[in-house]
Amino acid sequence: MSSRKSLIKIKPNSYKDGEIVKVSFMVMHPMETGMRKDKTTKEIIPAKYVNSVKFEYNGKVITTMNVWESLSTNPVFTTYMKINGEGKFSVTYSDSTGEVHEKSMKIKPKG
C-alpha cells in the first residue's frame, strides 16, 4: 500500500533529452510535531515527521533534503531537474520514527 501513499509528478508530461523539467514529490504523512495534544485524550501526540528526502536519477544523487517538523501535513517537494537519458528517477524518504520508503518513475525522453 505504501506505494499508493506518494506520487511523483514530472511537468511537462512529455519532454526531450536535455530539457529542464519540474519534478514534484508528494507524500501522505502526518508531519506530527510532537507538540500537539490529541483533542479527546489530551495526550501529546508523539512526533512523526519526514526527516529526509533524496532524489536520484539513474543512481546519481540530484537533490537531498533535511526536513523538519514545520513542513505541512502531506508535504510537497518541488524542484527542477535536467533530463539526461532514459532510465529511472527515484525518491527515497525516511521519517523520524525510522520508516524508510522508496518511490520511482521511468524517465523516457522523446527525441
Binding site: 499508493r4 501513499k5 506518494s6 506520487l7 509528478k9 511537468k11 514534484s24 508528494m26 507524500v27 501522505m28 502531506n74 510537497v76 518541488t78
Partner: peptide, 15 residues
C-alpha cells in the same frame, strides 16, 4: 492546485 496533495488520493482512487 498544480501540486495538490489530493492527487495522491485520487490516484489511489483510480487503482
Amino acid at each position: 492546485l498544480e501540486d495538490n496533495p489530493a492527487d495522491i488520493m485520487v490516484a489511489n482512487g483510480g487503482e
